[in-house]
Design a protein around this nucleic acid. Structure first.
Lengths: 124, 124
DNA sequence: ATAAATGGATTACAGATGTAATCTGTCTAT
DNA sequence: ATAGACAGATTACATCTGTAATCCATTTAT
């Protein structure tokens, strides 16, 4: 599947949040949240359809759009490729960067610790 | 500073690894490691200079290139913006994705735990 | 029933990107 | 000294991206 651009991702994320949506529903949401122009949103919906990232159902002359790719699948795949490119696949330096830049809350850290502890238990 | 594209990043990373380098040294390295054409590498060096990501020193008719931006600065900034776009700023789901996809080694996990433990001590 | 609004399709257009080729001025080997 | 090699500068070119505008066929409001 083709790459999804940043602005296309915004549209796709709206559909992950809720779907199916008509184009005007998507437009309304993104005019609000992202200050995007109607025409722009429609172009992006079209491109996402061409890229087979989104499908639609016709109902009369209105289309109802839904994502064709799962959020998890997409975000995880992008994460792996990002960390590959940026840190040669190593996750630690990314997390270290967050820590140094004070981007971690106590809660984040607690969550991560739980996650890692669980991981270790499973490896047993 | 302008965005650095993926293929430009490959060149920049070579200079992070070692610098200053002449263009032909960069070319040699990237022909090897990334199968990139000489002309392509030179174009990318030029673009990086225009973007003020790389500088050079003339020595005779040969230039010696060096990075102008620090690897840490760049990778951390990109990480923050990636996590913002992808996970609304939350780091945990990214790490969870790695865990689920079996991309963590016991060593990675140990490193991360140490990192997080240290973080907590500092917060005290 | 006409004009305006709406939905989707098509077209626009400048800048970024990947990937080179060509040009131009030295330097070097013969 | 001349031709070829090499360095950097400039140009090329298709595709992708962000951001819309225009076109065309309905539908709806007056």
């Amino acid at each position: 599947m083709k790459e999804i651009s940043n602005s296309e991702l915004v549209v796709l994320q709206q559909l992950w949040q809720q779907s199916p949506l008509t184009s005007s529903e998507v437009v309304d949401a993104l005019e609000q949240s992202h200050d995007m122009h109607e025409k722009t949103v429609k172009t992006l919906l079209n491109r996402l359809v061409k890229k087979q990232a989104v499908s639609f159902e016709k109902q009369g002359r209105v289309y109802h759009y839904s994502p064709l790719i799962a959020e998890q699948d997409y975000t995880v795949k992008e994460s792996l490729s990002f960390v590959d490119r940026m840190f040669a696949g190593k996750l630690t330096p990314l997390v270290a960067g967050f820590a140094q830049k004070n981007k971690l809350s106590a809660e984040d850290v607690a969550e991560l610790q739980t996650l890692l502890d669980d991981w270790q238990k499973e490896q047993k």
